[in-house]
């Protein structure tokens, strides 16, 4: 399935992600890492749990706000089978737990403060994703 190249809206969306990361540091002195926020919302207790749940609530309202502004929901096409969604989701959960972060924590906040751990993690997961898609689409020939 082809998708349109959208440099301007993608750049704008990226700047918004950056603004959220900067506001989190400015107001609360914290990294915006989706992995830590999700895991902390499950495992932490007290205020450490509450603030993470509030961030998640804000995140989940985004498609509705997008609908109000754009007049339609954001496009979400999942071009894979249900078993593949389950396997992919499980691997993402295991990987971000051992790797201690994902695209937002390592890829944006970590690299922005020049953390060697985050630079290594980001290069690793980007290459792994590219190789995985290559194997699935061009060697196995699925999707």
């Amino acid at each position: 399935m082809e998708t349109a190249f959208t440099p301007y809206v993608s750049l704008f969306g990226g700047v918004l992600i950056g603004i959220a990361a900067v506001l989190m540091m400015l107001m609360h002195g914290r990294i915006f890492g989706a992995t830590g926020i999700l895991a902390g919302a499950i495992f932490e207790r007290g205020q450490e749990q509450v603030w993470r749940i509030l961030v998640i609530v804000g995140m989940i309202t985004a498609p509705a706000i997008y609908l109000l502004i754009a007049g339609r929901m954001p496009t979400i096409d999942v071009p894979i089978t249900t078993p593949a969604i389950i396997i992919g989701g499980f691997l993402v959960g295991v990987g971000v737990t051992f790797g201690a972060g994902c695209t937002s924590g390592h890829g944006v906040c970590g690299i922005a403060r020049f953390s060697p751990r985050s630079i290594v993690a980001t290069i690793t997961f980007m290459i792994a994703a590219i190789v995985t898609v290559y194997i699935i689409r061009h060697i196995i020939g699925a999707a």
Partner: peptide, 29 residues
Amino acid sequence: QLIGGAAVFGIGWGIAGFCPGASIPAIGS
């Protein structure tokens, strides 16, 4: 742990196309 975890995350991301920061807002759909 860092490199292995990041690699496993990348494989999952390459299979499903969602990372954690994208899947949480997507719940709102």
